[in-house]
């Protein structure tokens, strides 16, 4: 049983489905946590303190990193196999088939944009928070405490180019999830003709909720920079 997850096409797809589901659940949690920063810097920093360099936070980070690694490693593996299966000679004329989304045909490209955004995000936040704590330092290179996530958010999204890069990242994630969410259910066998419209609707809602939740935080903090009067309304 163990090996069908590696030596069968349906098993490999199941690994993609389960690891994808795990990442969606994590992203939903992360988005909910971020939204707190709009309402209360103290509450947000309490969560940051809880998710500091404690053993459970480190264990969670390790499991999360494993999930990301498995999802991406399998994505590249499956894509390599799929390109081989397509053959060496490609069609001279190609079209987009009726009812087929652009995202569904470009999941790897969108995934690569997502992982590049993730690398940028880790350098902006993880490297200035949990990593700083792990190294035993009491402040990061910006002079902020590693648990002062709210201040770090303010600093990061006061720069327009960071806002732009993050919005592009979230847009790629949105597209990825519009196909990924219903596709993971189809791969697990939970779909039929009655449920396709519902599952695709649920995918759109989940993807939009995640995009909206992340984007509103980034835009809110940037607007506070360009219009300081807004700062008084927020955290």
């Amino acid at each position: 049983m163990g090996c069908f997850l590696t030596n069968s096409s349906l098993g490999r797809k199941l690994v993609m489905s389960i690891s994808g589901c795990f990442l969606v659940l994590f992203i939903l949690f992360h988005m909910s946590m971020n939204v707190v920063a709009i309402f209360s810097a103290e509450a947000y920093n309490m969560i940051c303190g809880f998710l500091g360099a404690s053993w459970y936070a480190l264990a969670g980070t390790a499991v999360l990193a494993l999930g990301v690694f498995v999802h991406f490693a399998y994505a590249f593996w499956l894509t390599w196999q799929n390109r081989k299966a397509r053959g060496n000679v490609r069609y001279a004329v190609t079209v987009t088939e009726k009812g087929v989304s652009w995202a569904s045909k470009n999941m790897l490209l969108l995934g690569v944009i997502v992982i590049l955004g993730l690398a940028l995000h880790l350098s902006h936040f993880w490297a200035k928070m949990q990593l700083v704590e792990l190294l035993g330092h009491h402040e990061n290179n910006l002079g902020l405490e590693p648990t002062d996530g709210a201040a770090l958010i303010k600093y990061t999204f006061s720069q327009w180019y960071n806002v732009l890069l993050y919005l592009v990242w979230f847009a790629a994630l949105w597209l990825h999830l519009t196909h990924g969410v219903w596709s993971m259910l189809q791969t697990a066998g939970w779909a039929n003709d009655t449920w396709y419209p519902r599952l695709k609707c649920i995918s759109g809602i989940v993807a939009t909720l995640i995009f909206g939740g992340f984007a509103v935080v980034v835009v809110w903090f940037y607007l506070q920079t360009v219009c300081p009067c807004l700062a008084a309304c927020g955290a």
């Binding site: 096409s9 490999r12 797809k13 196999q81 799929n82 088939e97 569904s104 045909k105 791969t187």
Partner: peptide, 15 residues
């Protein structure tokens, strides 16, 4: 036989 892995694009049912 070397067929690829399904990614649920739905292009097959369209054609």
């Amino acid at each position: 036989l070397g067929f690829g892995n399904c990614t649920n694009t739905g292009a097959c049912q369209a054609e």
